[in-house]
Write a protein that binds this DNA or RNA. Structure first.
Length: 353
DNA sequence: AAGACGGGGAC
DNA sequence: GTCCCAGTCTT
């Protein structure tokens, strides 16, 4: 009964999304990975470019991971891209290019967790596997009036609710309800197809369900960022796969003890960083993450050879084909602003030669 | 169970 | 400023 009302509402009110025009498991999979912890509206332009460049699993498996990271640049959570690339190669190598349609095999691929497995299995393969994302968590918490349900509880509830005749539509309907009506703030209960069976609504606790997670403690981190730009390009370092901005190209970074700690050339040298000329400081760029407040302290420098192997001077045109974090562009703007100020202060020194 | 991992949009 | 988004992996 309630299932029928939710499905009818979904068929009437669902958004038009690029991945709703296909049942191709590859396309569904890509959309699910891109939407992890990411607003749908932010993911859409990335998805469109991705599917033009990599229309099949084989296309991604054959592509250099650097090309993928360039496409992913700005979307965040870059391990998603690296895992998807690894997963695509595994599908080609271990599954003959066919995306596995069993939960255990699909779930074993890197980057595929309980949610993504449930979503792809139900939407692309019409299998009755529950998918609990942030939307479903909120919808079910309110329906059952649960304050702090565990993922396990929610999965059991979601599993018992699955419409076995149309698992794909059911998964999407539940998520769409959370996205469009059963929102965290100002839910539109009057328009909800499940308003009659919603326990939180009956108890007047909708606004408190589920309880918000306590925010993580935000640690402050200070980093020196070495900006060495010449006519030949900008010196970049490929970041290790583990850690922030893994696999992306970034100016060389070095931990700074505090906001006021002076630059210590000997400690920098111990990390493989030595300067040809004195460093000019630029205003700090603040980069906020969920659990970090990163203060990037740029220094305009000329780095002395020899460099570590993972450094490279990259010219402007090649730079656009590298995966880079958004913070790189922000440091770049700070550097350019300072150079403009210098030019205004002493234009005669910068006369074109 | 908790922390690491991006970035941005809505308020 | 705050919250949190179609989560996953590691410890």
């Amino acid at each position: 009964m309630a299932r029928g009302r939710l499905r009818a509402w979904f068929q009437r009110c669902q958004r038009e999304l690029p991945w709703r025009r296909t049942r191709d498991p590859w396309a569904i999979w890509v959309s699910e990975v891109m939407c992890q912890q990411t607003r749908v509206d932010s993911a859409i332009p990335y998805y469109e470019r991705f599917m033009r460049l990599y229309p099949t699993t084989a296309d991604l498996a054959a592509a250099p991971v650097d090309e993928l990271l360039s496409l992913w640049s700005g979307l965040g959570y870059y391990s998603r891209a690296r895992n998807l690339h690894r997963a695509a190669t595994q599908v080609m190598r271990d599954h003959g290019g066919r995306i596995p349609c069993t939960e255990s095999e699909f779930r074993a691929l890197p980057g595929v967790g309980a949610y993504t497995a449930g979503a792809v299995l139900s939407i692309a393969f019409e299998q009755p596997v529950p998918a609990v994302d942030g939307n479903v968590r909120r919808v079910l918490s309110r329906l059952e009036d649960l304050a702090a349900p565990t993922n396990r509880q929610l999965t059991v509830i979601a599993d018992s609710w699955i419409d076995r005749r149309a698992p794909g539509e059911w998964t999407q309907a539940l998520m769409e309800l959370g996205a469009l009506l059963c929102k965290p703030i100002a839910p539109e209960c009057d328009a909800c197809p499940l308003r009659e069976e919603c326990r939180a609504r009956r108890h007047g606790t909708v606004a408190e369900r589920p309880e918000p997670r306590r925010p993580p403690k935000v640690k402050e981190v200070h980093l020196w960022a070495f900006w060495d730009e010449t006519a030949a390009g900008l010196v970049l370092e490929r970041r290790p796969d583990q850690g922030i901005w893994g696999g992306l190209w970034m100016v060389p970074l070095l931990a700074r003890e505090s906001a006021a700690a002076p630059f210590d050339p000997r400690r920098a040298a111990a990390a493989g960083i030595s300067l040809q000329c004195a460093a000019q400081p630029l205003p700090a760029v603040i980069h906020l993450l969920t659990h970090r407040r990163i203060l990037l302290h740029p220094l305009r420098v000329r780095l002395a050879q020899p460099w570590p192997a993972e450094w490279e001077r990259v010219s402007g045109e090649a730079l656009s084909r590298r995966g880079t974090p958004t913070s790189l562009a922000r440091i770049g703007r700070a550097a350019k602003a300072q150079m403009d100020r210098e030019w205004l202060a002493a234009p005669q020194e910068k006369s074109v030669g």
